[in-house]
Amino acid sequence: MLKVIKPGLFSTVQDAGRTGYQQYGVIVSGVMDAVAFRIGNVLLKQYNKAAIEMTLIGGTFEFLKTTAIVLAGGKMHATVNDNPVPMYKVIPIRRGDVLKCGAIENGARSYLCIAGGFSVEEILGSCSTYIKASFGGFLGRTLQVNDLISYEESFNPYHTYQVNTDQFYERKHIRLLKGTEWHEFSPKMQQRFIEQHYTISLEADRMGYRLEGQNVISLEKPFNLLSEAVTIGTIQLPPSGQPILLMADRQTTGGYPKIAQIISADLHKVAQLRPKQPLHFELVTLEQAEQAYFQLEQQLRLLETLLNN
C-alpha cells in the first residue's frame, strides 16, 4: 500500500487514457505529459502502468511495501527519508520509506511511477481518473489525506541510469496546423493569431487552457457550425475572441470554430505550461508535423531499446 500523507495541490491516478468510447460521450482523460509518463515507465521496464500525476505542488507518501519508483516530468525537489533523490532515475524503496515532493520548479506536472503500476480498478480499459464523472483512478477523485493505494511488492533489479530529457522539451515555439475552420478567418486574423504572444490564463486545468492575447481574434462573417469531434491540442475560438486550448480532460465534441491544432509532437510541452506562462506559436505543414512526430517517436524508441537491454 501507498499511504497518502499529503496529496499535493491536485493529484490523480492516470495512465495513457481511455480510448474507443468518445462516441458514447466518455472522454479520454489520461496523463497530460505522455512523454514524461512513458519514459518514467520505461525506466521501470514496463509500459502504460498507472502512475500518480501531481500538478504544481507534489505530495508526501509513505510506502508500506518494498518497491522501486521513478519521478518524471517537471523538475521538483524530492526526498526519500529527507535524503534528496533525482528525477528520471530508478529509486529503490523499502517498507516505511517516506517520499516528499515539493513544488514543481520547471514545468507544471510530475509523475510518480511505481514498479508494476498502482493497482486500481480498470474501467473501460483504463485506470485514468475522470473527475467530473467520478470514476476511474482511485475512487474517481483527486487523492486525499490517508488514502491507501495498492501496489505489488517488487524486488526486481533495475538499471542505475539517469535519463536526461532536455532534448524533448528544448524547443520554445509550439507548432500547430491550420484548423478545420482556419479559412473562415480573414488573412489579417490568421496572421494576428499566429504572430501575437499569448499568456496561459489562470483558467487552466486538465480540461483546457484559456489563452490571453493583446488582441482578440474574430470572424468577419459569423456562420453556423454543428458540434464536431475535438481532440487534445484543438484550439477553439469562442465569441470572446480569446482562444481555448483543449487538453486531456476535454469534452468529446465542440461547437466553436477550430482555428488550429497543436501537433502531436508538441503536446507534452504544452502539458508542462503553467498559468501566466507565455506561449508562442509556429505554423507548420502537415508534412512537417508528420516528420516531427516520427522524430519524437524515433527518439523514444531508441531510449526504450537502450533501457531494455
Rank of each mutant, 00 (worst) to 15 (best):
K3E: 14
I5D: 09
K6H: 13
P7F: 03
G8E: 04
V13M: 05
V13D: 05
V13W: 03
T19N: 13
T19L: 13
T19M: 13
G20V: 06
G20I: 07
Y21N: 08
M32F: 03
D33K: 01
V35A: 01
A36T: 02
F37T: 00
N41I: 02
L43M: 11
K45F: 06
K49A: 09
A51G: 02
L56S: 14
T60K: 15
T66K: 13
A72Q: 03
G73F: 00
G74T: 01
M76I: 12
A78R: 03
T79H: 05
D82S: 13
V85I: 14
V85M: 09
M87P: 04
Y88K: 07
Y88N: 13
K89T: 12
V90Y: 07
R95M: 11
G96R: 05
V98E: 08
G102Q: 04
A103W: 08
A108S: 08
L112P: 06
I114T: 02
I123C: 10
I123V: 15
I123A: 09
S126G: 07
C127Q: 15
Y130C: 14
A133Y: 12
A133K: 10
S134A: 12
F135K: 04
G137N: 05
F138K: 06
F138L: 10
F138M: 13
F138E: 08
T142V: 15
T142M: 12
Q144T: 14
L148Y: 15
S150P: 10
S154N: 15
V163Y: 00
T165M: 06
H173V: 01
H173G: 01
L177Q: 04
K178C: 15
G179A: 10
G179H: 03
G179R: 03
T180P: 05
E181F: 02
E181W: 02
W182E: 07
W182N: 10
S186K: 11
K188A: 15
M189F: 06
Q191C: 06
I194T: 07
H197R: 11
T199Y: 06
I200C: 09
I200M: 10
D205V: 07
D205R: 08
M207N: 03
M207G: 04
L211E: 01
L211R: 00
E212Y: 11
E212S: 13
N215Y: 11
I217M: 00
S218G: 11
K221E: 15
L226P: 09
T231E: 12
T231N: 11
L237Y: 02
P238L: 04
P238T: 06
G241P: 07
L245D: 00
L246E: 01
D249E: 04
Q251G: 03
Q251C: 05
T252I: 08
T253K: 06
G255R: 07
G255W: 05
A260D: 00
Q261P: 03
I262N: 00
D266G: 00
L273M: 09
L273C: 07
L273Q: 02
R274F: 09
K276E: 15
Q277P: 08
P278M: 01
T285C: 03
L286M: 12
L286S: 14
A289H: 05
E290L: 14
L296C: 02
Q299S: 01
L300K: 00
L302G: 14
E304A: 15
T305M: 13
T305K: 15
L307E: 01
L307M: 12
